[in-house]
């Protein structure tokens, strides 16, 4: 039972948009792949998210952002993580992210971008293969 370490993932929904169908579907897919998944609900501030990361100590976080506010939210979250010296958590984003923004976000340390229509299998595999610890 304890032989294989469990992967723990946080699925977050920062920002103001109120659509969390997608986030919930992803959370369930990760659970069905054998992971322990925390879903934190809507409207999380970057502070809320970083505090949750500190307390829950997940291996990966998935930010679901449909509001187009990724260019504001992602840097805020990454800066706070950096300030707390948290560098062993995989951070990725689901939502509609234009190509030109991806480069900017990648430089911030985010990785893995899932637009609408991404297969759930792809997301599960990405998480499994890109953990930082």
């Amino acid at each position: 039972m304890e032989k294989k370490r469990k992967i723990k993932v946080l699925v977050c929904k920062p920002g103001l948009d109120g659509h969390d169908r997608g986030a919930k579907v992803i959370a369930r897919a990760l659970r069905d792949a054998g992971m322990e998944v925390i879903y934190t609900g809507l409207h999380q501030t970057p502070d809320d998210i970083v505090n949750t990361i500190i307390q829950e100590d997940p291996d990966a976080i998935l930010l679901s952002i449909l509001s187009g506010a990724h260019n504001a939210l992602c840097p805020a979250i990454m800066e706070k993580l950096k300030a707390k010296k948290i560098n062993d958590v995989l951070v990725s984003v689901g939502g509609i992210i234009p190509e030109e923004d991806k480069k900017f976000l990648k430089e911030l340390g985010l990785d893995g971008f899932y637009g609408p229509g991404t297969e759930l299998k792809t997301i599960v595999e990405f998480v499994k293969n890109n953990l930082k610890r």
Partner: peptide, 28 residues
């Protein structure tokens, strides 16, 4: 889940007004 070995931890969501407080530590 006894079948997949996975779990959905959804309790925290009900306590979200306390996520940013220093004297509340929530663990799922």
């Amino acid at each position: 889940s006894p079948i997949t070995g996975g779990a959905l931890l959804g309790d925290r969501i009900r306590m979200k007004q306390y996520f940013s407080l220093d004297n509340v530590f929530i663990r799922s």
